[in-house]
Design a protein around this nucleic acid. Structure first.
Lengths: 209, 209
DNA sequence: CTCTAGATAGAGCGTTCGTTCTAGAAGGGA
DNA sequence: TCCCTTCTAGAACGAACGCTCTATCTAGAG
């Protein structure tokens, strides 16, 4: 019996999730918007409809452990979306453009509030909380790996795929950041067009300068 | 009498700066590293060797006004550096590569702690503090303008220069972010190589696909 | 039934937060 | 000389912080 039927009666904005899941999802969403220091444990427990006791029951390591779980949750969420988009297009260049469109839609739909789920948390704790920094680094590495694998599957050379996967993730992150700060999705659209050109340039069999 | 001779005797880690300047510089540096919520007014006043009274004397608007001043300071600082590098190279593509090198040096020298001077502050206050968001948007726009002007001066078409300036700033920001989080400067070097290729692609007179 | 581990509940701890407030020190103009 | 503005100094306030602690409740094992 991992999660018993002891949960509150399916009410509230959360589905039939267990208490632990509600806490992690809420923490992830709040830290994405307000950063690590801007998000209080009590705020998380309230919005997750859990009590302080439950939070410290599931996360005895306190705020740091909760932040790591929140980052890992955000990582998986975006990884699933990324994988779906990358596999949904025949051409990797078009797939990357689709990514920028999706990011722009998400930003606009949230009124420019919901950006990357790990950036705000990671940046606000730069060198202070090693566990958080490590989890954020793993998130970036994982996302980059997804792009790398997609390029390899399309026949790109290993070195090219490696470098391109770096730049694709960096540029997606940077363009989302610029779009969020400027409240304008043009940075994302420009990034999409340019990344597509760049991928075309390194396409296997293409002429190289 | 703007700044009297009433300052403390040139001691401390700060030069012969006025109290207001010491406060702004300290706030900028601390918020760059710890974000808006992670940086306290008292911490700023202590590290700036100023008192709380001085802080609220110069910034009656409190933390928000101070954060705006800190962002504007960081903006000017990076703009000066950016202008110097862009003008220091004959070719805009080489200039952008020089930028990525400079960013990598700065990150490494600070042990991956000093990233972009506005990102952490802006992200941590996403939609909550409009003044900060506006100042951050102006910073990005200003930096982008510097790249745009440099490309125009090199003869690039207006539309190309516009789109490229977007992607250059986005990618620089994203690569610096990825490098900081991963504590690894490879994202910046990959970004430099790819941005140079992209600029070459749009060079005036070059063949276009 | 009893017993126990898992989970929930929230009062309360010491600390720090942003801010306010009053008091004083320093220099220039009258 | 006195005054007035500018700047420095830090005690004090209510609120919020992360966290600890004890108490209670529930579901299943025996």
């Amino acid at each position: 019996m991992k999660t018993s039927a002891r949960q509150r009666g399916a009410a509230g904005p959360h589905g039939a999730l267990g208490t632990r899941d509600r806490i992690v999802r809420t923490a992830s969403r709040l830290m994405q918007r307000q950063g690590y220091d801007g998000t209080g444990i009590k705020q998380i427990s309230q919005e997750a409809e859990a009590t302080l006791g439950s939070v410290y029951h599931f996360f005895p390591g306190g705020k740091q452990e909760l932040a790591v779980a929140a980052i890992r949750h955000g990582e998986k969420e975006f990884a699933d979306e990324l994988r779906e988009i990358l596999d949904g297009e025949d051409d990797p260049a078009e797939a990357v453009v689709a990514c920028t469109r999706r990011l722009a839609e998400g930003l606009r739909a949230s009124d420019w509030v919901d950006g990357c789920p790990v950036t705000a948390t990671a940046l606000g704790t730069a060198g202070r909380v090693p566990d958080v920094q490590r989890a954020a680094a793993e998130a970036f590495a994982h996302w980059r790996r997804l792009v790398f694998d997609r390029l390899r599957r399309a026949g790109f050379a290993e070195d090219d795929a490696h470098d391109l996967s770096h730049t694709v993730i960096s540029t997606l992150e940077g363009a989302e950041l610029a779009a969020q700060v400027s409240q304008d999705d043009r940075p994302l659209h420009a990034a999409g067009r340019h990344l597509a050109r760049l991928i075309d340039l390194h396409r296997p069999g293409a002429a190289r300068s």
